[in-house]
Each structure stands twice: as C-alpha cells, then as structure tokens.
Amino acid sequence: MKIVKIKTPVTTEKIRELKAGDNVLISGIIYTGRDAAHKRLVDLIERKEELPVDFDGQFIYYVGPTPAKPGDASGAAGPTTSCRMDPYTVPMLKKGIKGMIGKGLRSEEVVEAMKKNGAVYFGAVGGAAALIAKSIKKVEIVAYADLGAEAIHRFYVEDFPAIVIIDSEGNNLYETEPKKYRTI
C-alpha cells in the first residue's frame, strides 16, 4: 500500500499528484467545519464579505468533535457524512480549499468542481474517532464559537490517517472498489 506524507497548506500541483487509493498521513493545519459553519461561510461569500479564515491551499475536515477531557488536546473526532456539505462546497472550492476530509458519497457537481479547481476528497474511517484523535496535537477555535462542536476549529495534526477517495481527475474509490467484490 502506497503511503504519502503531506503537509498543509498545499499547492494545486501537489494536490494533482495524489491519486485515488493513496493512503496519506497529513501533518500541519486542518480546519473543521460542519453544516452550520458552512452555511455561515457561504452566506458571507454570497454577500462578498470577508471570511474569518483564509482557506487558500487549506484542508477542511467535516467533524464535530466531543469535548476534550482535561489534559487531552482533542475529544473523539471522526468524520461526519460529507454529502450534507455538498450544497456549500462549490463556493468553498472557489475560495481555494484543496482538500476535504469526510466520509461518504459526494455529488457530481462537487466532483466536477474538484476537477476544475484541483482538489481532493479524503476519507477518514467513520467511527474511528478515538483513534483519529491521537493524531490531533492542538486545537483552537477560530470562528463561530457559539456553534459549540460545530464551531470552526483549527487542528494541528501529525500523521492524520486518511485515504484519497476522489482525486483531482475524478477517479472515485466508491465507484471502482465495491464493484470488485460485488457478487450479486
């Protein structure tokens, strides 16, 4: 199995080197965002106002962690279902997001925008939240603190485990892999 180490932020050229099926270990900064934060961000984009974070070259992780225990950097932090963010994703890609981390299917519109803008969709294993938390070293809230678990957090991660599910050419593991094991 090919393992690629990547450091954020990234350039479009670097992102285009990643291929569906690559196992990656991500280090650097990852921003978090779920439904409520995405809604606010896209409202700002539509009104042509400034965003609270510069997303150019950055990764966004669809997650709403549990509160951290005293002494721990992060609580359990596994991916949430990405398709709920599909309606907001095209404007986010235009703002320079290069990587999205989540679980589950994406819309055709999102995949098309990924190809166009040069971005990758990573999968983290859903329900492996306690394990994933081990790679999160520091957490800061950067916007929308009133949203609690749904606030935008900045995660400082080391070797965060993920798999490239959809690459910047639109190759999609959810389409290619299950077929190989289908016997019905």
């Binding site: 609580g75 306690a130 994933i132």
Partner: peptide, 14 residues
Amino acid sequence: NDVIASDEKIAMCQ
C-alpha cells in the same frame, strides 16, 4: 479504535 475508547474512557465515536 474501540479498544482505545474503552481503555481510555473516551467516546468510540464523536
């Protein structure tokens, strides 16, 4: 993951 969660008493899923 499930072993870590029960050993360290943290939620197995967020």
